[in-house]
């Protein structure tokens, strides 16, 4: 666990590495397509011209995709996903006896390529592409848990104010991962899995306070610094594929 964390903390290195791997992957896909067409090899194989409708669910919520096999080893999928999440009292700030409500809302449209590199292992796919996140927000609202004592004066919790922290990752994000089980069903239906991660843009973060906490907007810069490396959106997804 320590090594994983230490590794993840080397984010500038990961950022460069991920971008390079992504570019190499895309270049390989493009070269492969061009190569196949240039040599006029008859197009055949597990993915060629196949079409499917996919319903998926996982860590990036629920969504749907249209898949199309563009050659023997490569398929494209165009789809959309969304997820609304919320949880109570998942976060505490030291020095602030409070209740909290945290929520997140992510929705994207994406274009991904499934590449099956091994002829004898059709169930293993490399997956790359990108998404545009129309909505990628995290919100944390905190308010005092009880009435606030200021000296001998009791200020009702409702009058003390609250804190709202907002984070926004909206924008384009590359995706890299791998898939397990075949991209297209042999017959009418199959299931496969995706495991990977989007690499989101650096988030915008701010704090807005009300009432006696109105001065907390001064903490926005610190929150932005704390969240600048929160860019990996992991995807663990189950796909239900219906042959078209």
């Amino acid at each position: 666990m320590f090594f994983v964390k230490a590794f993840l903390c080397r984010l500038p290195l990961i950022e460069i590495l991920m971008k390079k791997v992504f570019l190499v992957f895309l270049a390989l896909v493009v070269l492969f397509i061009k190569d196949v067409r240039a040599q006029e090899i008859p197009m055949y194989g597990p993915d060629l011209n196949q079409k499917s409708l996919r319903i998926n669910m996982g860590s990036q919520g629920v969504g749907a995709e249209f898949g199309y096999g563009i050659n023997a080893k490569t398929a494209l999928r165009l789809g959309a996903n969304f997820i609304p999440l919320s949880a109570n009292n998942a976060v505490n700030v030291s020095g602030f006896n409070s209740t909290s409500r945290v929520s997140a809302s992510f929705s994207n449209v994406h274009l991904l390529a499934d590449f099956t590199p091994f002829a004898n292992a059709h169930g293993f796919r490399l997956v790359g592409g990108a998404a545009y996140f129309m909505n990628a927000n995290g919100n944390l609202q905190m308010q005092p848990k009880s009435d606030y004592s200021y000296g001998d004066i009791v200020v009702p919790a409702a009058d003390a104010g609250n804190l709202n922290m907002r984070v926004n990752w909206k924008g384009v994000a590359p995706y890299l991962g791998f898939g397990l089980l075949k991209a297209f069903p042999n017959h009418a239906f199959n299931i496969n899995f995706d495991l990977g991660s989007y690499y989101l843009r650096r988030p915008d973060a701010n704090i807005v306070g009300t009432g006696l906490l109105a001065g907390n907007s001064s903490q926005s810069a610190q929150l932005q610094r704390n969240l600048k490396d929160y860019r990996f959106l992991p995807v663990l997804q189950l796909n239900f594929n219906f042959k078209l």
């Binding site: 964390k5 993840l8 903390c9 984010l11 860590s59 990036q60 997820i83 999440l85 945290v102 997140a104 992510f106 995290g138 991660s197 989101l200 704390n226 969240l227 490396d229 929160y230 860019r231 990996f232 959106l233 992991p234 663990l236």
Partner: peptide, 9 residues
Amino acid sequence: ALIALAGCK
């Protein structure tokens, strides 16, 4: 899983 986003801090 979603919000941690593999952040370190």
